[in-house]
Design a protein around this nucleic acid. Structure first.
Lengths: 238, 238
DNA sequence: TCGGGGGTGTCATGTAATTGTCATCCAACT
DNA sequence: AGTTGGATGACAATTACATGACACCCCCGA
């Protein structure tokens, strides 16, 4: 069972979008639409992370965040604030109320997921591996570096996210549609063939002279990170 | 007994098509043609998943979906929206009304079945085996791999779907027409004899030197995955 | 403000896998 | 033996994927 997320958000569509994507990534999601409700919920069960809307009925996000910090049980509970676009002061204030991070609406889904992961990595490293390793490939989420056989590789941002996503579930086959959603974001309108191109670039970027291709094309279905490659015996660090 | 599906769809032909195919896959199907009827039905019995037409008499699919989400009993009930082609921000809209997934009409039957499976796998993993196993054959839906006696086999997309479908109901005999609907999709106009050819290809693809043929031809009726084969003792992993 | 990169999304093209049909051959039933 | 239905190998059309080219765009340093 994945990390538990509590979403406190009154705009239902947004809440659902978040829920949908987080669940798809394996989180266990709970949600409430009012600040005061959230407070009650937090007495019953403490999640691993909270996504908190800035503007809320019942009890504002800022105030709720203060109260979270005030209770010893939730003192260190990771909180990400969802703020409306624009206000400069907001950012500062958001953090000064005790949020660990904030993100400005509207945001892209991969962006949010990345922040949730980043924060969890900082606070509950057990949940989120910072280093993905498979075969002779290492991807470090923190430093954004990728190495193969000890050698550092250069990947563009998209290639990096794509590889990260694929390595997250070795073996599993993802359709181009799914990849577009997960790597590019939901609202984008991009040709599915573009995925091919990026997979090609990724392949070129992580290809080494006589090393096998770790990315598997499944005709008619999509792509996957080859789990047989992933399971392969590690090269000795010699 | 398979997962229960509630279909809310007023176009009768479509509803029947769905019912037919879902039942063939082992689902227990219930259906209503009006949105308000659906609401009542949902008070009597809660299915495992709902297929919901976007446009409905009585109560629109969107509104019904909202209400489903509003009741705590059905808050997390998986919903797939059936939307007409082309409407503006289909994706966002569909999801933001709270549906877990949506599919654009007209869709192919295998496509729909795949989505139903995918969603159930996410929400009620107990129902949907990701791995089909019968005799010495293993078909992994997640990785799209097929193994026989531990050895990986290569199947084309159609052969894969065909095997998947047959393995789903070992012993059950399917007519060529039925197979065309389930594996190829309804609107296709393909010669029934083509099924023979694909069965042949499938046989060749999964055939190993001195292993028996797991696909049974039923003269005058169709084909089935041989259930005696399926029940056969597993080879020791020695 | 004016050129570079670097990174992206599309396209056109080349290529190999897949597919639907046929014609033919075979096996099973009458 | 005569039929009927199924298996199979061949084939041509189609599809799906890989790749190189290219036009933008955005950010930075000059």
């Amino acid at each position: 069972m994945g990390p538990r997320v509590l979403i406190v958000e009154d705009e239902e569509p947004l809440m659902l979008l978040l829920r949908y994507n987080l669940e798809a990534e394996g989180y266990e999601v709970d949600s409430v639409s009012r600040g005061d409700e959230a407070e009650i919920r937090l007495r019953e069960q403490i999640p691993d992370i909270v996504l908190l809307d800035w503007m809320l009925p019942g009890l504002s996000g800022i105030e709720l965040c203060r109260r979270i910090r005030a209770r010893s049980e939730t003192e260190r509970l990771p909180v990400i604030m969802l703020t409306a676009r624009g206000e400069e002061g907001d950012r500062i204030r958001g953090l000064s109320t005790g949020a660990d991070d904030y993100i400005v609406k509207p945001f892209s889904v991969p962006e949010l997921l990345a922040r949730v992961r980043a924060l969890l990595r900082r606070t509950k490293p057990a949940y989120i591996a910072t280093l993905l390793r498979a075969g002779d490939i290492e991807l470090d989420r923190e430093t954004h570096r990728v190495r193969r056989a000890g050698q550092e590789l250069h990947l563009g941002p998209t290639e990096f996210r794509l590889l990260e996503f694929l390595m997250q579930s070795p073996g599993r086959v993802f359709s181009r549609e799914h990849l577009l959603n997960a790597v590019w974001g939901h609202d984008v309108y991009i040709d599915e063939r573009t995925v091919d191109v990026h997979v090609g670039r990724l392949r070129k970027a992580i290809g080494l002279p006589r090393k096998p291709d770790p990315i598997r094309t499944v005709r008619g279905a999509g792509y996957s990170f080859d789990e047989t490659f992933a399971r392969e015996d590690q090269p000795l660090e010699a």
